[in-house]
Amino acid sequence: MKKSLLDYILRVRLPITLFIIIASFTVTYFATRAERDNVGYSPVQPINFSHKLHAGEMKIDCQYCHTGVELSRHAMVPPPHTCMNCHSIAKKDSPEIKKLTAYYMEQKPIPWVRVHKVPDFVYFNHSVHVNMGIKCESCHGDVAQMDRIVQVHSFAMSACLNCHRNAKEKLPYLKNIKNGPENCYACHR
């Protein structure tokens, strides 16, 4: 009797237990991916703006719209005003542009769904990174190929420190890059 009990335990219960453990771990890993480091997050936006079209095919520079990125901490999502620079004429009648025009005429801002975010206690400074020569793609991925923005890089602190500590490896296109600051006050005031 004892032998078959052991056999039963090893052949049935053990695999089931292991399977449950591994399955729950995997499920939790992916289910909480969003809250942990947000990789793969690609929400639907109120207007179907395609970076692939504008930044990729039309080769509009990132800084044409995101003007604050060289001057201040914030990269700044452009106001509809910037879009209307072209779209008051270009493709006026497409349904997405009609939505844009409606927002602009009503003097309402467009409620974009935020994709890339660091927690409130982190004071990330865009201009310092951009002025050092770091390209937008290094952190935001190849935006010019994204129809809808998806976060490709983890924004957990470990990811930031990884680059700060190994700047030469992570940013090979910059010749004289030094390692970034490691002290707390650099980001956590």
Binding site: N38, M76, P79, H81, Q107, P109, V113, R114, V115
Partner: peptide, 20 residues
């Protein structure tokens, strides 16, 4: 989980303001 919230930009940004 409501995502990362929203970004609400200006509708027409005043010229003298550089955010930040």
């Amino acid at each position: 989980y409501n995502g990362n919230g929203k970004i609400i930009p200006y509708n027409t940004k005043p010229e003298e303001i550089t955010l930040g």
